[in-house]
Design a protein around this nucleic acid. Structure first.
Length: 279
DNA sequence: ACGCCCGCCTGTAAGC
DNA sequence: TGCTTACAGGCGGGCG
């Protein structure tokens, strides 16, 4: 579900809500969501008694620093949600796999119907070396300051379709299916253009569209589709879906040229674009 | 090195 | 109404 903007919104919510809190109790309903651990007790014991000292993001991963030098790594996968429950009396919903209770009261809950998401505790100073998904992450489009010329050199070194390149987490960290389509519309480029075929002007448009699209999406607190799988820490949906130009708008009119938008399958997933505005 | 498919899961919607 | 199928934002692995 969540891509960079949604994960960033949740990270900001977590920073406000759980930093400084100390873990009192941890419950997990099975091993699926904490599959890197040997057992539930070991997972719980690495959290209990520790205070959250900060919350960072690497691409689509959330890292909650703990006092004592460990870190709680969270990946939401396709359907994962982090929800804050204040007081203790809020009933847990179906698919709640992990509940972290703080000493000051209140809980952080991990809900994940499709169970592609996960969380685990590991050493902070080796996490980016030992966890290969993190070790191989590419640049973060919002965190890494870089010139469009530098971006253009990186893009031109590859010989890949633009959509595949934008979604390649080893190249750029955080962009998924929704935002790749939105970025490419913003840049006026087709999804299947080869990365080494862009003019300087096209590179500049792509870089600009990438940064602006992601920033806007964060500003509107992410995209919540009809399934409502993405909500923020307080259970509230985002509003960026109201600003989507192409994603899930097959057959609707292009906001720029009024022609109907098209959908194509690529790499097993839907791709939305305008045949006239994207070349 | 890359393109493409599968598997991992559950839920929902569309099609018959 | 029911059954079946397709599809959904994630990722890793394997094969050609």
């Amino acid at each position: 579900m969540p891509e960079l903007p949604e994960v960033e919104v949740v990270r900001r919510d977590l920073e406000r809500e759980i930093v400084g809190k100390k873990v009192k109790a941890v419950e997990a309903d099975g091993m699926r969501s904490i599959r890197r651990h040997h057992n539930r007790k070991q997972f719980a014991n690495r959290l209990i008694g520790h205070k959250i000292t900060g919350v960072e993001r690497r691409g689509k991963y959330i890292l909650c620093r703990l006092d004592g030098g460990e870190v709680l790594v969270i990946h939401l996968g396709m359907s994962g949600q982090l929800l804050r429950a204040k007081g203790g009396r809020v009933p847990t919903t179906k698919h709640t796999h992990v509940v972290i209770t703080f000493t000051q009261g209140g809980q952080l809950r991990f809900v994940d119907p499709r169970t592609f998401g996960e969380m685990f505790v590991t050493e902070l100073d080796t996490v980016e070396k030992d966890v290969s998904e993190l070790a191989h992450l590419g640049l973060d489009p919002l965190e890494t300051a870089m010139s469009w010329e530098h971006f253009g050199r990186m893009v031109a070194e590859k010989h890949m379709k633009l959509k595949a390149l934008l979604m390649d987490q080893k190249f750029l960290a955080g962009i998924g299916n929704i935002y790749s389509d939105e970025i490419l519309f913003g840049a006026g480029l087709r999804w299947d253009r080869m990365s080494d075929s862009l003019s300087a002007q096209e590179v500049r448009r792509l870089y600009r569209a990438m940064v602006e699209t992601l920033q806007d999406a964060v500003k509107y607190r992410g995209s919540s589709l009809s399934d409502m799988q993405y909500v923020d820490l307080h259970g509230k949906p985002g509003e960026y879906q109201l600003h989507h130009k192409v994603y899930a708008r097959e057959g609707e009119t292009c906001r720029r040229c009024r022609r109907p938008l098209v959908r194509e399958r690529y790499g097993g997933r839907s791709t939305f674009y305008c045949e006239a505005c994207q070349v």
